[in-house]
């Protein structure tokens, strides 16, 4: 069945090598609009690399990346414009430490989207409310807890009104008691219909929020399907072994 609307993200035989090291072998993956897909897998399996290929923070060495049907590996595509449609949230937050929260939330709106000062400020206030940090507009990143910083990072991505969001282990750098507040914000986004591609080790989150779970190992997608199937009743030996290790911890 084909739909008239192209998938938000489509990876076709995506490959990536760093020199000799083949990190992604041949990845085929579609994320339709409004879908939440979680990627799980052992360390070094290429999850981050896959995610970074989606907005071309890494240049693929083979295959195609299509965003809304546009092949962004084509050198003629306008990658800077495409990136404004894709929000990205990093494990290490990567907030701009020399700018306060308002500055973090408005700089791309002003420089890239050319929004007015008033418009971008209003937007900053509204996305900050969305992540529950309305009172932090004039704080600097260093004055915030890890969980708050990550929520600001999510707000920063949202401020550009992206169509889809990429998350690379957004809670892995957080103290355990701060994980929940970030996952809550992400669940809110998912419920509001945001297209999301999430690399995570939070199996509870994947199970409750994802429409689909993808298990990766050795640069390949080993298994994918609904969360209850992949996490609850994995078919492949490697998936089973990985999940056993995760749940043992």
């Amino acid at each position: 069945m084909s739909t008239p609307i192209p998938p938000a993200i489509e990876l076709c035989s995506l490959a990536k090598s760093f020199g000799e090291l083949q990190v992604l072998r041949s990845i085929d993956l579609k994320v339709t609009q409004g879908e939440v897909v979680c990627i799980i897998g052992p360390s070094g399996s290429g999850k981050s690399t896959l995610l970074r290929c989606v907005n071309l923070l890494e240049t693929p060495t083979g295959g195609q990346v299509l965003i809304d049907g546009i092949d962004i590996t084509d050198p003629h595509s306008d990658i800077d414009e495409i990136r404004t449609r894709i929000g990205m949230v990093f494990q290490q937050f990567n907030l701009f430490p020399h700018l306060d929260v308002a500055g973090n939330l408005t700089i791309a709106q002003r420089r890239v989207l050319k929004r007015s000062r008033i418009e971008s400020n209003d937007k900053a206030v509204s996305v900050l409310k969305r992540v529950g940090l309305s009172d932090k507009l004039h704080s600097y990143p260093r004055q915030l807890s890890g969980g708050q910083q990550q929520r600001v990072a999510i707000a920063r991505a949202l401020a550009s009104d992206p169509e889809m969001m990429l998350f690379d282990e957004p809670t892995s750098a957080l103290d355990p008691e701060l994980v929940g507040e970030v996952l809550d914000v992400m669940r809110g986004l998912a419920e509001a219909g945001m297209t999301m591609l999430v690399v995570t080790h939070e199996m509870g989150f994947a199970r409750r929020v994802a429409d689909r779970v993808v298990f990766m190992d050795g640069g390949l997608i080993v298994e994918e399907g609904p969360p209850d199937q992949v996490i609850g009743d994995p078919q492949h030996e490697r998936t089973k072994r990985f999940l056993e290790q995760v749940f043992e911890r």
């Binding site: 923070l57 990205m88 990093f90 990567n94 907030l95 890239v112 989207l113």
Partner: peptide
């Protein structure tokens, strides 16, 4: 920092 900036379309 560069990656975050570029991912925002700068």
């Amino acid at each position: 920092q560069m990656e975050a900036a570029r991912s925002l379309g700068m």
